[in-house]
Design a protein around this nucleic acid. Structure first.
Lengths: 240, 240
DNA sequence: TTGCTCCTCACGTCACGTGAGGTGGC
DNA sequence: TTGCTCCTCACGTCACGTGAGGTGGC
């Protein structure tokens, strides 16, 4: 009866505060040596297995990945210190990331920024409720700007000379809704809208009109589409 | 050319700031509706897909699991608020766990508690360096106590009447090393060791002598084994 | 004889990344 | 004709949990 072959896998696991499945897993990846088997094919563990397994488990309790545990246990006591410190650094970084994330979630919850974009658009600009077709358009605008409609409006407002967006968008929107089939009206409206979409040097345009038109083009009347096309031309010209 | 079937998967993914693989994954799990295909079998996406995908991505940026995103997007605006708050709570809990973990890692790094158990045993008790056989025994003692040798020594010390462990272990250890084949000596030594291992009501014994003997029994001389057996008897008697 | 422990596959987890092998589009 | 994008499998990730189906030990 060899002194080093006494424990069965269940006893070993319990002494180390883990499960038989974990022990077999450590065998499978070579982290813990396979012990000898008894006549029945059962694994029989000795003191050295228990000592090693408990070390593994203590490091796992620190959330150290198994691969690093393997390196850790293979290293010298000097490496050990370094590996603990780098583990603490990792944890510190993770904590900071989660804190930033939590702050964003709370800010979002407070700002209601995940609510219906059309609602937020209305609130920001102080315009009356939008018809269904325009709600879709605003939802798309929201999706197309990295910071949503708020980002779009903020970017435009920040670049705008004179009075801000809120008082100026309403009238233009009204005119856009009922723009007549008349070149002069189209041209004037396009110019008015272009004035609301300033573009600084090398900055991304606040609105991706191309995708907008591509995806929702057929929701507009022919003169409305001419306004949009003309608007794009004006913005493109301004680039040069 | 249907207005709602314009984007190919690559364009859609780029507009939403993600990958084609992620988009296909969302199709596979039913989070994003499969769009119609064109003549070549390519998926063609419209505005509603982009809007939905961007919403998914914005929630994923908060590390919300896809299953919760699905519930979130299916729910009413009221659910939405609740789901954001519970997400923030989850993150708060995760942060606390990681902070506790980090504190433990730093404490371990400072206390050197992962170094060789025999070293720590030596330091704690002020005894000279141990021979190899005893180092193994201490490593096993360390593995068998949830808090390692420090926990074992602290638990014993705390319960001990009179002067603490450090001055008392050394002489007993010396005597154990060379215990003669003599019943009186065995008995006296066992009694001395038993005095060092006090046991309060209903508390776990500080040392799992049974496993100790099972795993390392044959490292000891016959009289030493008699000491250990007698020690176990004394501790067991004390229980009643 | 009946539970209990053990054995070996092997799938599932979570959200995709990364080829593998093949085919339309410009 | 040559890249580029698309297509559908299907394996890999991380550390096991959880059966499935079968066999020794007390």
């Amino acid at each position: 009866m060899p002194s080093d072959a006494h424990l069965r896998i269940g006893e070993l696991a319990e002494l180390a505060g883990t499960t038989t499945r974990a022990v077999r897993h450590y065998h499978a990846i070579g982290l813990l040596a396979e012990p000898a088997r008894d006549e029945s094919g059962y694994r029989r563990y000795g003191a050295e297995h228990l000592v090693r397994l408990v070390r593994i488990r203590r490091l796992r309790a620190l959330d150290m990945p198994l691969e690093r545990i393997a390196a850790h246990l293979a290293g010298t006591p000097g490496d050990l210190d370094a590996s603990l410190r780098s583990l603490a650094d990792d944890l510190g970084r993770q904590i900071e990331e989660l804190q930033a994330l939590r702050a964003r979630v709370l800010a979002l919850a407070a700002s209601n920024a995940l609510a219906a974009p059309a609602e937020r658009w209305r609130e920001a600009l102080g315009v009356p409720a939008l018809p269904a077709g325009e709600q879709e358009a605003v939802a798309l605008l929201d999706a197309l700007h990295p910071q949503g409609v708020e980002g779009l409006l903020a970017q435009s407002s920040a670049l705008l000379a004179g009075p801000g967006l809120p008082g100026r968008v309403g009238p233009l929107l009204e005119r856009f809704r009922e723009v007549p089939d008349d070149e002069a009206a189209v041209e004037e409206l396009a110019a008015g809208l272009a004035a609301l979409l300033p573009r600084p040097e090398r900055a991304a345009p606040p609105v991706d009109l191309e995708t907008m038109e591509k995806l929702l083009g057929d929701r507009f009347t022919p003169p409305q589409r001419r306004v949009l096309r003309r608007l794009r031309e004006l913005l493109a010209e301004r680039e040069r």
